[in-house]
Write a protein that binds this DNA or RNA. Sequence first.
DNA 1: TTTGTGTTGGGACAAATGTCCTTTTATAAA
DNA 2: TTTATAAAAGGACATTTGTCCCAACACAAA
Lengths: 190, 190
Amino acid sequence: MIRTNPELLTYINELYNKKNNGITEEKHNPKQRVIEQNKRYNWVYIIKKGITKCYLSDENGKDFIQEFLGEGMEFGEIEVFSGNPSFCCIEAITELVVYKISYIDFNTLLENDKKFNRLVIKAMAAKISYKAPRHSYQQSYPIEDNILRLQQLFPKLTEVISKSDIANYLGVTLRSLNRTLNQLKHRNEN
Amino acid sequence: MIRTNPELLTYINELYNKKNNGITEEKHNPKQRVIEQNKRYNWVYIIKKGITKCYLSDENGKDFIQEFLGEGMEFGEIEVFSGNPSFCCIEAITELVVYKISYIDFNTLLENDKKFNRLVIKAMAAKISYKAPRHSYQQSYPIEDNILRLQQLFPKLTEVISKSDIANYLGVTLRSLNRTLNQLKHRNEN
DNA sequence: TTTGTGTTGGGACAAATGTCCTTTTATAAA
DNA sequence: TTTATAAAAGGACATTTGTCCCAACACAAA
């Protein structure tokens, strides 16, 4: 739900502290967009502190939240390899601190630092493997099952994330989310 | 819909023909499973010829098709990096020929062959970036829109892929798929 | 204070989708 | 040929989810 990658963060911290690798730091306020959809960038980011949402919006104004990204999560790296403009939008939810690496420096690290190379690949493998069961579950089960699953995986959910973000994450309307939460509440009372 | 990766296939072909890299060939008949869910393997595969489906099944017997994989597509590589057992099942749809590389040889290539390394990363980036819009679209739009989208992206769909596979790809029941196809047909007749 | 604006919550109804069941057809096995 | 078996198609009904509203509340800006 809120993904993290401590292993990657630790390594980037080391790199940042050790030498001049072209890694810089940047701060963002809540609701600020770090990356916009369909634009081109020359930076790869790694979250040092805070939470963002990663989402796609379509022509009809519907947003679909891919993932909530926490510490150590990388974004903007896919476009280094695909050569495409950004396919999603990254927006800060909390106060956010990110590390920033230019494409050039990122590629240099990839080629010359085996550990970095392996960590980047592992991060991508993780993205692939957590998307699969989520997609599968969301398609196959009703809203209620998905809410219960989320609450179990991440109990503090509603403290951090707004209702409409949760709805957009589950791919349902706010109305449906509220209705289902209500049914769950009443069922627990009896 | 049926993903391919010609660039990777070309390179693996070269490797296979050139020297002894530990790459072997293997054939499978339709409906045969190359990889089963939750099992451990020591092989990475690349499709030389044919089509497979990649799907997750859950406790309740529901199958959700992640993707149809065609020539040049790689599978089993995620587990090299995650260290987990296979998270999906790969089943041949047509006659299938695959290249097979052991984890050891795969890792050796990754470390020593920069082009191979880059192609594997690119393949993973592609997987991430096509999953996102698909997931988004399927969650946000009704079955009809999704069928129309599929028909446009891949007109010969129903010739190759069974109805129930299409339903499992869209995450809907066969009944709903049929109903929607029927509605579309009647609408076109008038 | 008043005036917005965003978030939360829910009523009433419509539309989409699922469940269960039956039939037909094609194709393979005996 | 007969017999199974799987795929395709659809009827009838139940359930889920969406759409379109409106109301209450918090909180910030004027």
